[in-house]
Amino acid sequence: MKMKRVLLWFLLGCLMIFYLLPVYVMLVNSLRDASSVSLSTMWELPHHLSMQGFIHAWSLLSPNLQNSLWMVFPSALISSVIGALNGYIFSKWRFKGSEFLFALLLFGFFIPYQAILLPLVRFLQWINLYGTIPGLILTHVVYGISVTTLIFRNFYIHIPNSIIEAATVDGAGTLGAFWRVIMPLSLPAFAVALIFQFTNIWNDFLFGITVVPNPQSQPVTIALNNLSGSFSVDWNVVMAGAILAAIPTALVYIGLGKLFVQGLVSGSVKA
């Protein structure tokens, strides 16, 4: 029994090393000063801590971090509100064919977006939103609707129908019942949907790089990739940049981990 316990802790220790290795690499190399960044000292602790890397990365990435923020909040909010309304109809006001429509809607979450990319770009050019943050917001809202609908539908299924029947007997319409009795109960689902969308949209790369060609208007993931590919930037700056780009979703994860797990499990279709 004792042997097994030792083995268990040994395994967990090795696994912790594997999972924390990249975090270690990011931290120790982002805190080095440019003069001591070299290939041979990658694993060593810095002799003295320097914020140079972060200051430089911040000056390069802060416009893109702002772009990401401007993109992520409206997209997450709008797609969640639309998802709540859809989920409400698909769970509480089913009609003939509504299940089929739901499946059609849900399919949109699972397509490889490459298959819509060229028409999307042409369409955004046509409505003059190509290369802009509003264009990205529209894109993320449209392709986010399916998963937010799924999250809310799976949540509302567990709310008894009698609540809505009671409200409609009192004279409330479909929307009235939603507003009066469903919305006040929806806070947990909103938290899950908002976190899921925040993480997904913040981490997006494909739409960012294809919809917005101008480096000044691009989200931070694209700017970070450009930074990492350029030979003129020292890699303490790249590692600091990676940390800056990771902080928002990492904070959401650390602060709201439980809701985060619910979100990723509900992204797997089963109610």
Binding site: P22, V25, M26, N29, M42, T199, W202, N203, F205, T221, I222, L224, N225, S228, W235, V238, M239, A242, A245, A246, T249, A250, V252, Y253, F260
Partner: peptide
Amino acid sequence: ALSFIVTGVVWRW
């Protein structure tokens, strides 16, 4: 919770 880009940038090194 991280972006694939962050993962790619670090593992590349």
